[in-house]
Each structure stands twice: as C-alpha cells, then as structure tokens.
Amino acid sequence: MSGIMAMLMSIVIVGAGTGIDSDLPLRVWHAYKLAMPVAFFCVLMVRPLVARLVAVSIRS
C-alpha cells in the first residue's frame, strides 16, 4: 500500500511541480526513492489508530 501511494503521489507532485517532459520518469524515480521509506514508516505509525477506528465503527 505504501509503495503504490508513494509512486502515485510522486508522479502527481513532480508532474505538477516541474511539468511533464522527457525527464519526468527520472525526476519521479528520485522523488520515489525519498517518498517510499517515508510512506512506509507513516503507514506503520498510523496503522494502530486506523485499526482502533475500524474496531469502533464496526461495533456501532
């Protein structure tokens, strides 16, 4: 999940910020190399909160 989201966000943000041209794939790859570890650790940190919210909403 974090890998897919990091790639999609990298494409959108790099494309919007620097434009779409022949260098886009390389710029996206550089952005993805930074975004993937950040997204992975964010998912790990947010997971317990999401699990609690799901448990609360299912009981209702």
Rank of each mutant, 00 (worst) to 15 (best):
L44V: 11
Y32C: 08
R27C: 00
W29T: 08
I20F: 13
P25L: 11
M7A: 12
G17K: 07
I13N: 02
A35R: 03
A35D: 01
V14H: 01
R27H: 08
A39F: 01
L24W: 03
Y32L: 14
G19R: 09
I13M: 15
S57I: 10
L8T: 11
C42K: 08
P37T: 08
M36K: 06
V43G: 12
L26F: 09
M9E: 05
W29H: 01
C42I: 11
P37D: 14
A39C: 04
F40S: 09
L8P: 00
I13G: 01
L26E: 07
V28I: 12
I13E: 08
V50N: 08
S10Q: 04
W29P: 00
G3C: 04
A16R: 05
V54A: 14
Y32W: 14
S57A: 15
L49V: 12
R47Y: 10
R52C: 09
V50A: 11
I11Q: 01
V38S: 03
L44R: 07
V46H: 00
V54P: 02
L53E: 04
I13A: 14
R52I: 13
L49M: 14
S22C: 02
R27M: 07
A6C: 10
R59H: 13
G19V: 05
L34H: 07
W29L: 10
S10P: 08
V54K: 15
I58A: 13
I13R: 12
A51T: 13
A55F: 10
R27E: 05
A55M: 07
V12R: 08
T18N: 09
A39L: 01
R27I: 03
C42T: 09
L34K: 07
L24K: 00
R47S: 15
V56P: 05
M1F: 07
V50D: 07
R59L: 05
V14S: 00
V56Y: 15
M5I: 10
G15K: 04
M5D: 09
G19E: 11
L49C: 12
V28N: 06
V56E: 15
I13W: 11
S2P: 08
I20S: 06
F41R: 14
F40W: 08
A51M: 13
L8W: 01
I20N: 06
M45C: 09
T18V: 09
A6T: 06
A16Y: 09
G15A: 13
L44H: 02
I11R: 00
I11S: 00
G19N: 08
F41L: 13
M1D: 14
T18S: 14
S57L: 14
V54N: 12
D21L: 02
L34R: 03
V14F: 02
